[in-house]
């Protein structure tokens, strides 16, 4: 889901930077206000955690592997605003040091994975889990459903961003300048692979990690957001 440089035109890249700047500023303000001073390293831990989560190869049927994004998991553990900062930091490091995800596409990548993904996932989790006890199965199911739906929403957005490039940037001769496929191809391709494969990986990982944390140290599910 990481959009590399060259897939989105300058208009889309610029638009998402403009959208993300106030979100980053607000996230910074809210986190500074709500996070206790001694929890500051938690942001870095969350960022490193979401970076490393993407490196875990999760086996899927058929002998192959996929990886989770972990955005919903970090949002459940740290809250959505702190998750926004943590995932942004992870995406910036990936783009600058790893070449994964473009520098010009950081705004779009952060909108999809550091804003929409954790916020959608967090609120879906909140609605489904409601006020159930920290160690209830309902929270495990809520985490899985939230991981699946939120990842698919983010994937659909990414597909939409790819798909509009051929409308926005084309020469008179019909030559595509950026991502060459329209919405009729990009949207089903992105939704299809995430609905069939990666969404399930995200759901399984999010649910199982919450289940293990419930068993080992249930306080962690609410502590990080305190």
């Amino acid at each position: 889901m990481h959009i590399p440089d060259g897939y989105l035109g300058p208009t889309t890249c610029g638009f998402f930077y403009v959208v993300m700047v106030p979100i980053w500023a607000l996230a910074s303000k809210i986190v500074k206000k709500t996070l206790k001073a001694k929890q500051v390293p938690l942001l870095a831990i969350g960022a490193a955690f979401s970076f490393v989560i993407m490196m875990f190869n999760v086996p899927i049927p058929g002998g192959t592997t996929g990886h989770a994004v972990g955005g919903v998991l970090v949002a459940i553990l740290l809250g959505p605003w702190a998750a926004c900062i943590a995932i942004t930091v992870a995406l910036v490091i990936q783009a600058l040091l790893f070449g994964d995800g473009g520098v010009t596409a950081i705004g779009a990548n952060c909108f999809n994975m550091a804003f929409v993904l954790p916020f959608a996932g967090y609120y879906i989790y909140k609605v489904i889990s409601h006020n159930s006890p920290v160690d209830s199965n309902r929270r495990v199911i809520a985490a899985g459903v939230a991981g699946y739906i939120a990842l698919n929403i983010a994937a659909a957005l990414t597909g939409f961003e790819f798909g509009i490039q051929s409308f926005l940037h084309k020469t008179a001769a019909g030559q595509a300048l950026y991502c060459p496929y329209g919405l009729n191809v990009a949207l089903p391709a992105m939704i299809g692979e995430h609905a069939l494969v990666f969404g399930w990986v995200e759901a399984i990982v999010t649910a199982l990690v919450i289940k293990y944390i419930q068993k080992q140290d249930p306080g962690l599910i609410t502590e990080g957001r305190a």
Binding site: K38, F56, V205
Partner: peptide, 23 residues
């Protein structure tokens, strides 16, 4: 899948507890 999830949960657990020492 269970092993990968256990690894992630254990990683979070260990690192969260490291927070206070880092602070």
């Amino acid at each position: 899948q269970r092993m990968a999830a256990w690894n992630m949960a254990s990683l979070w657990h260990r690192s969260y507890r490291l927070n206070e020492a880092v602070y």
